[in-house]
Amino acid sequence: MFAQQLLNGVTTGAVYALFALGFTIVFGTQRILNLAHGAVFMAGAFIGYFATQKGLTFVPAVLLAMAGSAVLACLVDLVAFRGLRASGQLEFGAIISSIGVALMITSVGQGVSGTRVLVYPFDFVPNLFFSVLGLRISLLQIITLASVAAILAVVVFLIYRTSLGRQIRAVAGNPRAATLLGVSPGAVYLIVFAISGALAGYAGVLIGLLFNTVHFMMGDPYLLKAFVVVVLGGLGSVYGAVVAGFLLGILQAFAIAYFSGSLADIIFYSLVFLILIIRPGGLFGNAASTVKVGRA
């Protein structure tokens, strides 16, 4: 059972990492808690679902969900944050405005779904299982792990190895200095939101497929988990979010497997508490340092 639960944990952790990465890059570049991230994640799952209802296959449906969520995330930036950014009231105002936008998006989700739980078609991803060294692994788990690994690699490459990534890091470090160097912070923020939304959208589709549920309230519990993941990983740390995402998934699986479902959260949050006592800045961060999209 150990290896099987490890696989369960790694699969779930991969999606947590994807979701939390979108949350943390917005925080890392702009120092705002985008509490509408869960609603964008929900919207991605909905777009993917309705794409399947129109007969789209897996890849086009995923691309549509990612594109739709990216556009929605940009709208969130324009509606909820841009005005606050201009007025210099971003840090706390953003929390309230993003909650407002999240409620609006959630209400649309409720209206569209009629409050029902939606389910992706059962044959959307073939229900195939493989037996590898005594492990029971599904095609969906393989797709999840492979695609998340590829996406994480692309995002890391984008941030640390491209001109766009340099602009993002420059804006994260000092927006005024970046402006003097010819970088447009407004455009960079929009791009970061688009990346964040696309990641959330794909995470939404994966959660909808893996756990057979698409629901207008599905973003809330994942937002809380993402918040824990980014604090644990170190606020704004890309690598921290990824490592902490996997850690959360694996710890949850083992807590359920070897203790009880009712104790899983207690065990996990106790461990987070202990880690933060030892490393207040999280695994890959420092609470006192300037928050930025950094490697560690």
Binding site: Q5, T11, L210, Q252, G261
Partner: peptide
Amino acid sequence: TNFSALAT
């Protein structure tokens, strides 16, 4: 929504 560990 995630019952994979529980189910195993």
